[in-house]
């Protein structure tokens, strides 16, 4: 056992300082997609997206729904003048409408964020997280598990993992909801005591992702239980998840620049 302790001490401190310090992604990282030019778009651009996240309205206004975007990069490769990968991890939003970028009305999330912060005030610095998988592809689980490894170590921020939903404050849901998982999801949510927050992790949870529309998967978690925070991504990186969690417990009230 001493050898393990020595090894651990020799590793030193490798934990990121986020959120107190910035953590930018490496160059070329395929993170959230930003719309560079949203005017006078060709309607054929909408065919680029496998999940139909790109929309061109009648006046040529271009918008991209990050909640349906699986970050495949087809639009960035085909139309680099219009689309580019944003140089940040953070994507979380309070409402589904805020996930749409491009030619849309600006959505002020601050009141919604303040309401969530108010609700989470009694939780203090000790927040227990319960996870449920309702049909993900397995990658989001790896990213959630990574939050407790020494690189991110969210225990320093007061987040703990619990197995019992009765002790949980935040529920992380991954995957679009398949039929057999509907009742388990409802049961898990019902058994959690108030105040509680639900975070939909991953594009599949926000909108159903690639499998949406085939009748086997409901179109996102909000079709079954109300969602408080959306964290899109395929899968969202641990920093993006951390950002979403901080939003869910009310530590981020001011809006981040899109």
């Amino acid at each position: 056992m001493l050898a393990w302790i020595a090894r651990g001490l020799a590793t030193g401190r490798i934990t990121t300082r986020y959120p107190r310090g910035a953590e930018p992604p490496p160059s070329g990282y395929q993170g959230p997609i930003a719309v560079l030019d949203s005017e006078r778009a060709d309607p054929a651009l909408a065919q680029l997206c496998p999940t139909g996240a790109i929309r061109v309205d009648v006046r040529g206004g271009l918008s991209l729904d990050r909640g349906s975007c699986i970050q495949c990069g087809e639009c960035v490769r085909t139309a680099p003048a219009r689309f580019a990968f944003a140089r940040r991890y953070e994507t979380a939003a309070r409402t589904r409408a805020s996930l749409v970028v491009g030619n849309v009305d600006h959505h002020d999330e601050r009141p919604a964020r303040r309401a969530l912060a108010e609700q989470a005030r009694s939780l203090g610095r000790s927040i227990h997280i319960r996870h449920i998988d309702t049909g993900s592809d397995g990658a989001e689980e790896w990213e959630i598990q990574a939050l407790w490894n020494p690189h991110y170590d969210i225990q320093r921020l007061g987040f703990f993992l619990t197995a019992a939903p009765r002790h949980a404050d935040v529920l992380l849901v991954t995957g679009g909801v398949t039929d057999p998982m509907r009742m388990p999801l409802r049961r898990t949510w019902a058994v959690m005591p108030e105040p509680k927050a639900l975070v939909a992790v991953g594009t599949d949870a926000c909108s159903g992702g690639l499998a949406a529309g085939n009748g086997l998967v409901a179109g996102g978690v909000d079709a079954v239980v109300p969602v408080d925070v959306y964290v899109p991504g395929s899968p969202p990186a641990p920093i993006a998840l951390l950002h979403g969690l901080l939003l869910a417990v009310g530590r981020l009230t001011e809006e981040v620049e899109a």
Binding site: I132, P165, R166, M183, P184, R187, T188, A190, V191, E194
Partner: peptide, 15 residues
């Protein structure tokens, strides 16, 4: 301060 709410027994998501 709040009345307690009753919820069914937890059996790992099974009913």
């Amino acid at each position: 301060t709040r009345p307690a709410r009753r919820a069914p027994v937890w059996v790992t998501g099974s009913g």
